[in-house]
């Protein structure tokens, strides 16, 4: 059959569901092992954060798409959580190998890290669904002019939902791509576009934490000699 945009989107969704079918909604035993190895066990905080962000996400999803779609928002969030735990485990395995250390207490107790990682997982889910359900005309005429409701739920929508600085989201993108080999070429391109948007625009907003870091860096002075301008 011809490879239409709708068919491509349906194939991506099918693949995503297949990939995450065997993944768990809860941290695996391996992940729990990493939590237990921490100086401060983050298990409880992680579970609480996932629960809170789930409520916020479902509420905002229903506001944007329609109150009848609360269940759909919960389904999307559930897929995002599966991906979040899976990528977290892969990242920690890779860090253990790189650093020869099993105690990631600082990282695993960072709220910015978890919120960014979950936001990135959800962005992958939401971007996969763009061009599917709501483009079939069920949700009004906008479906026919290319301005699907779901397009509005793509990046940077998730930053607003989680009140997450773009600068923090940026930090997880590269490690996320490295840790999740099943990402399609289109999805990697999408995440790259998110990176560019942050670099060129979102990270330079007045409330960005980047300015404070630049200030700190300026006060501490250069750590090493700057490279020549040509480089």
């Amino acid at each position: 059959p011809p490879h239409t945009p709708i068919r491509a989107a349906m194939n991506s969704i099918q693949q995503l569901r297949f990939d995450l079918n065997s993944a768990q909604d809860q941290p695996s035993d391996v992940l729990c092992g990493y939590f237990k190895n921490c100086t401060v066990d983050p298990s409880e905080e992680i579970a609480k954060r996932v629960d809170q962000l789930g409520q916020v996400f479902s509420c905002r999803f229903a506001q944007a798409v329609g109150q009848g779609c609360v269940g759909l928002g919960k389904q999307r969030f559930c897929l995002g959580v599966r991906l979040y735990y899976r990528v977290m485990e892969a990242m920690l395995k890779s860090e253990e190998k790189r650093l020869s250390d099993k105690n990631f207490s600082k990282l695993l107790n960072s709220s910015a890290f978890h919120t960014s990682l979950l936001a990135c997982a959800l962005e992958v889910i939401m971007a996969t669904y763009v061009g599917s359900t709501f483009k079939n005309g069920d949700f009004g005429s906008s479906a026919f002019d290319g301005t699907s409701v779901e397009t509005d739920l793509c990046f940077p929508w998730i930053l607003d939902v989680f009140q997450l600085p773009a600068f923090d989201f940026y930090k997880v993108i590269e490690s996320f791509i490295k840790a999740e080999p099943s990402l399609s070429r289109d999805m990697i391109k999408h995440l790259e576009r998110c990176e560019h948007l942050i670099m060129e625009h979102l990270a330079w907003r007045g409330d960005s934490p980047m300015f404070e870091l630049l200030q700190q860096s300026h006060e501490e002075g250069p750590v090493e000699q700057a490279e020549p301008p040509a480089t």
């Binding site: 990242m91 890779s94 860090e95 790189r98 650093l99 990631f104 600082k106 990282l107 960072s110 709220s111 910015a112 890290f113 930090k171 997880v172 590269e174 490690s175 791509i177 490295k178 080999p181 990402l183 070429r185 990697i188 391109k189 790259e192 870091l213």
Partner: peptide, 21 residues
């Protein structure tokens, strides 16, 4: 992931990026 331009050096990882929290 071949098309993606990886910028992190080998000695950098997610731990270092969230170290300033």
């Amino acid at each position: 992931n071949q098309d993606y331009h990886f910028g992190l050096e080998d000695h950098e990882g997610i731990s270092e990026l969230f170290d300033c929290d």
